[in-house]
């Protein structure tokens, strides 16, 4: 008797979770349906698998280009964030003076600033820099990456700083005595030890940068530079909505996320927990 009730609870929990994800199911099945079929029943499985709407959505969203842009921007930003934040955080954590404390507190304090407070002056400043130096800050992938680094480094510095404080100094001191420069000590001795928190930093930033919409929408104006959220936005704005094609487009944008989730699930859940609790 008790076994049966446990089994039914298992099933109930699983069905509950499936029901929770039903919007994803509805999105997926309707990406294959004709309009008539959709109208008949949105919840039913499609009668036949046609990839017609996927082809249309890929073409209209310029999906391959957008995917490439998103991938490039996310990866390069994260390489810089990890490198620069870990170096800075280590220096700040190991230098015990007023200046390093002030710098660290500034990083923390600015985490309070919502993006909307900075967005307009940021664009003005980037425009001024562009005109003064000729460096193309606006409407370039490089400029966007530069800004992603600026916005996401505080959190990374904060996480790295906390982690560095928890590892012993003795290994670094030994390396210094053996004649290692600070640079060598950091990359050969310290950085490998930071691996767990590096994984957390990478995960949090992948989610943040991949999905970011507002910053790229302000910085990028050329069609061929659009990231996935941007091309989705314009895809919905430019045409009267053809829901089957729209669902195909949305499914396309969700696929990379699901693949990433399947491969990094354990790290993601751990990373979210750590990132939030600290």
């Amino acid at each position: 008797m008790k076994k049966v009730s446990k089994f039914s609870r298992e099933i109930l929990l699983f069905l509950g979770a499936l029901l929770f994800l039903s919007p994803v199911y509805i999105m997926f099945v309707n990406s294959f349906k004709t309009r008539a079929e959709m109208y008949e029943n949105v919840l039913a499985l499609p009668q036949e698998l046609t990839f017609e709407y996927y082809a249309g959505a890929m073409h209209r969203m310029n999906f391959i280009t957008a995917f490439g842009n998103s991938l490039f921007i996310t990866i390069v930003s994260i390489i810089f964030i990890v490198t620069l934040s870990s170096m800075t955080a280590w220096m700040l954590a190991r230098t015990n003076n007023k200046l390093s404390k002030i710098i660290f507190m500034t990083f923390i304090a600015t985490m309070l600033i919502p993006f909307q407070t900075i967005m307009m002056p940021l664009l003005q400043l980037m425009d001024q820099i562009m005109r003064a130096t000729g460096i193309p800050m606006l409407n370039t992938r490089g400029g966007l990456i530069f800004m992603h680094i600026g916005f996401n480094s505080s959190m990374a510095v904060f996480l790295y700083h906390g982690f560095v404080k928890s590892i012993p100094k003795s290994l670094e001191e030994a390396a210094t005595i053996d004649g290692c420069t600070k640079f060598g000590t950091f990359w050969r001795v310290v950085f490998p030890m930071l691996k767990p928190i590096t994984v957390t930093v990478i995960i949090l930033n992948v989610i943040q940068i991949w999905n970011d919409f507002l910053l790229p929408s302000l910085v990028l104006t050329s069609t061929n530079l659009r990231t996935i959220p941007l091309s989705t936005f314009y895809f919905f704005g430019e045409f009267t909505i053809q829901w089957n094609m729209a669902m195909a487009g949305l499914t396309l944008t969700v696929i990379p996320v699901v693949i990433f989730y399947i491969f990094a699930q354990r790290h993601i859940i751990k990373g979210i927990g750590e990132g939030a609790v600290k």
């Binding site: 620069l84 600015t110 680094i149 600026g150 505080s154």
Partner: peptide, 16 residues
């Protein structure tokens, strides 16, 4: 170690 990030951070967050 710190100045590269500080330059970016200052330009993107502090000055704006």
């Amino acid at each position: 170690f710190t100045v590269p990030l500080l330059i970016i951070f200052t330009t993107v967050v502090l000055i704006p």
